[in-house]
């Protein structure tokens, strides 16, 4: 295998994994912008997306597109319900308390998934076959292209939502200043609900696209959530473009680290880069310094 084809292979591997991190990172950002919360349950939405999809396609024999949409819808509802039950009833809670609430939420989701589907791993058929495509000696699964494609679709939809729709603009207003937003007649509580629903939906889409490649089980969420969190922070919290770039970057770093340096230390390499970036730019790659100062515990 020539060096060039190795590089292409590592690059595509990294981009595939990175797309998932990016989607999880986007989910973190949406909730963070609306509430200042780091939602520890974000990774569980990814897990739930995959598991619900497996359940729908095996128990009800739903075709792929219907299963995809319905799973995203179900997980979106779960996200919204979680906000209504656990976040909404509280009056002005400190941010750290909210974070622990999402942590408790993630334990409950994990426990429920374990009860419903047991502890074994599940697989899904690939969306369009498993015959790999060849590119200059590298092999790429069609599913990898699906994942990258879904990330691009999510980014496009979000860009449209935030720039051209009223709820999207209202959400941006909330992230800048919730008090001012409520003064101009924006229902902040409803925006918070929307943010949880949206990031649950994005997480679910990521989970569904990812399951055919990696298998899904009840406790897969935490680590994906962690990587997505790193992506969100590396990109600059609250900055969507930053999360996407950072997510892809972390994925590529891990893949090149494993391929060229040492598979044992690949995660350490990625985390080390993360640390250095943060030390040089304390507000992440694309975050503004002021925004970093705004939200504290």
């Amino acid at each position: 295998m020539s060096l060039l084809s190795q590089i292409i292979q590592f690059l595509f591997t990294g981009l595939t994994i990175g797309s998932i991190y990016a989607m999880v990172g986007l989910g973190f950002n949406i909730i963070y912008n609306a509430t200042g919360i780091i939602n520890f349950a974000q990774g569980e939405f990814v897990m739930l997306g995959g598991m619900v999809m497996v359940w729908l396609t095996t128990a009800f024999n739903l075709p792929l597109p219907a299963g995809f949409l319905l799973s995203v819808l179900i997980v979106t509802c779960i996200g919204a319900a979680f906000e209504r039950l656990a976040i909404f009833p509280l009056k002005k809670p400190p941010v750290l308390i909210l974070i622990i609430i999402t942590l408790a939420g993630s334990i409950i989701f994990k426990g429920a998934a374990m009860l419903l589907w047991g502890k074994q791993t599940y697989s899904l058929p690939h969306f369009s076959g498993e015959e790999p495509l060849h590119l200059l000696g590298a092999t790429i699964l069609p599913q990898a292209l699906w994942i990258i494609g879904i990330l691009m679709a999510v980014v496009a939809l979000l860009a449209f939502f935030f720039n051209f729709t009223i709820p999207g603009k209202a959400m941006r207003a909330c992230s800048v200043n919730p008090v001012a937003a409520s003064l101009v007649g924006i229902n902040v509580k409803r925006i918070v609900l929307l943010s949880f629903a949206m990031s649950a939906g994005i997480g679910a889409a990521a989970g569904i696209a990812f399951t055919p490649i990696v298998l899904m089980e009840f406790d897969r969420g935490a680590l994906l959530g962690l990587k997505g969190f790193c992506a969100a922070v590396l990109g600059g919290l609250g900055n969507g473009t930053g999360a996407v770039i950072a997510g892809l970057l972390i994925g590529v770093l891990e893949s090149f680290g494993a391929g060229f340096i040492s598979s044992e230390y690949k995660d350490a390499i990625a985390l080390g880069v993360l640390l250095i970036v943060l030390l040089v730019r304390p507000s992440g790659l694309m975050g503004s310094r002021e925004a970093a100062r705004l939200k504290e515990f």
Binding site: M1, Q6, F10, F210, F256
Partner: peptide
């Protein structure tokens, strides 16, 4: 002599190295 983490989701990088 390659390794992977217990929750790793992809091992193409390691295998690509072996392929070489």
């Amino acid at each position: 002599d390659e390794t992977y983490g217990p929750k790793d989701t992809d091992m193409t990088a390691q295998l690509t190295k072996i392929k070489g």
